[in-house]
Write a protein that binds this DNA or RNA. Structure first.
Lengths: 203, 203
DNA sequence: GACAGCCATCCTACCAGAAGGTAGGTAAAG
DNA sequence: CTTTACCTACCTTCTGGTAGGATGGCTGTC
């Protein structure tokens, strides 16, 4: 395991955190150069153009996200627990401020001004995240581990939207706790109502 | 009532649509000049700096939003209907693509790179929107017109987050229908589960 | 009504710095 | 002797912003 913390990795990591802060037009090669400790021109050696850099960055982000979903998929069997861990991952990221926003969610908000190649990657992430959530919800509903109120697909899109909106609110309020406050009840609502007494009391 | 469609109004309107498309760093004075049909320098006559322009723009947006909430508040009495109309407003905006995103939601995503003065206005919008939603939900719950699963405040933040996330998904999918698909069930869930007899009696 | 003054609007022309990017060189490693 | 990684130096275009002048409508005053 040689520490291949290559310069290009440093550039990507730096660019990622800059994008998370301000989006595609919110950073420049000069910003990266300052942080990484390299000259502007050297970045062009690794990534000829800004589009190359961001496309690579989003592609890698997607790989990580896909790997994360796959990991959840064969480490955890309970669908509700999978969703809890997914939300918990973001809750932790937001709490320690390491990466308090999904790269693709942020870029998606600027889709109209994004280079096409980047936009395609961003949209692809939404599709694969939605597809995974749909499969989790579908399985959970089929086995009675989750309680859905509409189709798995519709619930998945609602779940994703709420998670993204919760990131936004946490940022707007400047309060990481908001994320958990919004996603907590979202997960609760999906849990099957086991205790009959409580369920009846709600009627 | 002379039609005071002043140049400064045109500038603000143009800047708003550009911000909705790409955020604070997604447009320049030159872009506005091209659209409005004026020279770059003339914009500085109306708005000395970009911060002035965007601060004014967001302040006006907030006024309109506040007016919209106040209007809903004394035109419609049923809380659920108020929420439906609120969501419906955005559904229409997204469908006809006139303003397919909330200015403040988009700017909030870039809060870390926003000039402080603009950031303050953006945060203020989140607070007043959340406060209004909270009051609607609280009243609805008190009068049995809405069915909440947690505190009005928590439900309000969840509602707001889901609406914002739905805007994002609609943009990411490039499909306006997604917004309604996400917010529809959200509203349904808040409607009280009335026994058929009662429902008919109310009809 | 004539005339001066004023001020809002918009203009041309310009600026400094930042943007993304290129050319061509050096040093080291294989 | 080529490749990789980095450099200095430079380019072009865009950026937000300024200086100062032309126009033209509104005043007040005689």
């Amino acid at each position: 395991m040689s520490n291949l913390s290559t310069t290009s990795d440093d550039i990507l990591a730096c660019a990622r955190s800059l994008i998370v802060a301000g989006g595609y037009n919110g950073f420049s090669y000069a910003d990266i150069a300052d942080v990484v400790g390299i000259r502007k021109a050297s970045i062009h050696h690794h990534f000829p153009s800004k589009v190359d850099l961001v496309r690579t960055l989003v592609a890698r982000y997607r790989e990580e996200a896909d790997a994360g979903m796959a990991n959840l998929e064969h480490q955890v069997s309970d669908p509700l627990e999978q969703l809890r861990l997914y939300a918990g991952y973001w809750e932790a990221c937001i709490a320690d401020a390491t990466a308090p926003f999904c790269v693709c969610a942020l870029l998606a908000s600027q889709l109209p001004v994004l280079p096409e190649e980047v936009g395609l990657e961003v949209r692809a992430h939404f599709r694969s995240l939605s597809a995974w959530l749909t499969s989790v919800l579908e399985r959970g509903a089929r086995h009675g581990q989750l309680q859905l109120m509409s189709t798995p697909r519709a619930e998945a899109d609602a779940f994703m939207a709420t998670v993204h909106g919760a990131m936004l609110s946490a940022r707007a309020y400047g309060d990481p706790k908001i994320f958990g406050a919004v996603t907590g009840p979202l997960l609760e609502r999906l849990a099957p109502r086991l205790p009959p007494a409580t369920a009846l009391a709600l009627g």
